[in-house]
Amino acid sequence: MKMVDTLLDLLFPPKCPFCRRVLDAPGMCPECEKTLPWTDEAHSLRELRGGLLCAAPLWYEGPVREAVRRFKFHGGVCAAGPLGELIAQAAAERLSGEFDTVAWVPVSAKRLRKRGYDQSRLLAERACRLWDVEPEALLRKIRDNPAQSSLERAGDRWKNTQGVYEAAGSPAGKRILLIDDVCSTGSTLVSAAGVLFSAGAAGVVCASAAFPRPEEEKRGEKGKE
């Protein structure tokens, strides 16, 4: 290990992204691995609007919700590794054979400058490490719309994602795994997938780190995420 890596480990030791316990190596602690709110086989694959499929390994609650929010809004990039690997596992188990390349739902240029990183790109890059491939930048966000989490009604979230993305790179003919951090109403993924299909993608399936539980999703339709 390089001296700079040793110094960084001493100054910023790896922590479990869920409970914040200091670890010997990056990842999650054994206790969280046992106690996190995992989706079961019946709920780890969800059909979104238009028949779009999305896989997720976790429920968006408790320590998962806190970890994702730290990751997105407070620089908690140590979560990218564990979450990306869990996304890859869920995609392999539930969507195997349905994709031949990986892309992500990008943030806007304005948000990227403010945050300093694109969280979904980090997740896609980490997931792809397990397959020894690189994700492709097949989408570009062209409008800095309000954050989905700031909107309460499902209909408002759907409208908020329209006309936000455009195709980049070469989606035509490809079967794409599209990665985002959380799939709540699915509006963002459906909108982004629609752009890829319009650009000639042969297929799109999706994966994220977490779903809201069904009862939370129903409440979201009435005005809360």
Rank of each mutant, 00 (worst) to 15 (best):
G116R: 04
I176M: 09
P30I: 03
S184C: 08
Q89C: 11
A91H: 05
V105F: 00
G27W: 12
L95D: 01
Y60C: 10
E215G: 00
D118W: 07
S44T: 09
R153F: 13
P106Q: 06
P17H: 07
E215L: 08
Y117I: 10
D132V: 09
G203M: 10
P214I: 00
V68I: 15
A103Q: 03
G27S: 14
V68S: 05
L86P: 01
E136N: 07
S96H: 12
F71R: 02
I179Y: 04
A80C: 08
P63R: 14
L7M: 15
A91Y: 02
L45R: 11
Q119M: 13
E31F: 08
M28T: 00
A124S: 08
F71K: 06
Y165L: 10
R49S: 12
R213F: 10
C54F: 03
R219P: 00
Q148P: 01
A201K: 06
I142P: 00
G203W: 04
E136D: 09
P106E: 04
A210G: 09
D181S: 13
P13G: 07
G203V: 01
R213P: 04
Y117L: 10
R20V: 03
W59V: 06
T39W: 06
L95T: 01
E33S: 13
G163F: 05
R129G: 07
L196Q: 02
S150T: 15
T6F: 15
L95N: 02
L123P: 01
R157V: 10
K72N: 13
A91C: 08
E61S: 14
V4T: 11
K2L: 14
L58M: 12
L11D: 06
K141R: 15
M3A: 15
A199M: 12
V22A: 13
P171V: 08
A202Q: 08
M28W: 05
N160I: 06
K222C: 06
L177H: 02
R115D: 04
A137R: 15
V102F: 09
G220V: 02
A193W: 02
V77H: 04
V102H: 08
K34T: 07
L178C: 02
C19N: 05
V4I: 14
G169L: 09
D9N: 14
Y60N: 13
G50C: 12
V182C: 11
F12E: 10
S96I: 00
L36H: 05
E166S: 11
D24R: 15
S44K: 08
L123A: 03
W59A: 05
L36K: 06
K218D: 09
A25N: 10
K110N: 04
D132W: 13
Q148G: 04
I87P: 00
F197Q: 08
Q89L: 15
I87Y: 00
P106T: 07
W59N: 03
E125V: 11
D181E: 12
R20S: 06
A92S: 14
V105Y: 01
Q162C: 09
G169Y: 08
R21T: 11
L48S: 07
R46P: 03
T185R: 08
G220Q: 05
G203Y: 02
R94G: 01
L130C: 07
A210I: 08
A67S: 13
M3Q: 13
E136F: 02
F197K: 14
F12L: 15
A109K: 11
S149V: 10
R115H: 07
S150E: 13
Y60L: 15
K141E: 00
Y165V: 02
S149P: 00
S150Q: 14
K110Q: 15
A167D: 07
Q119W: 06
V107F: 00
I87N: 00
D156K: 03
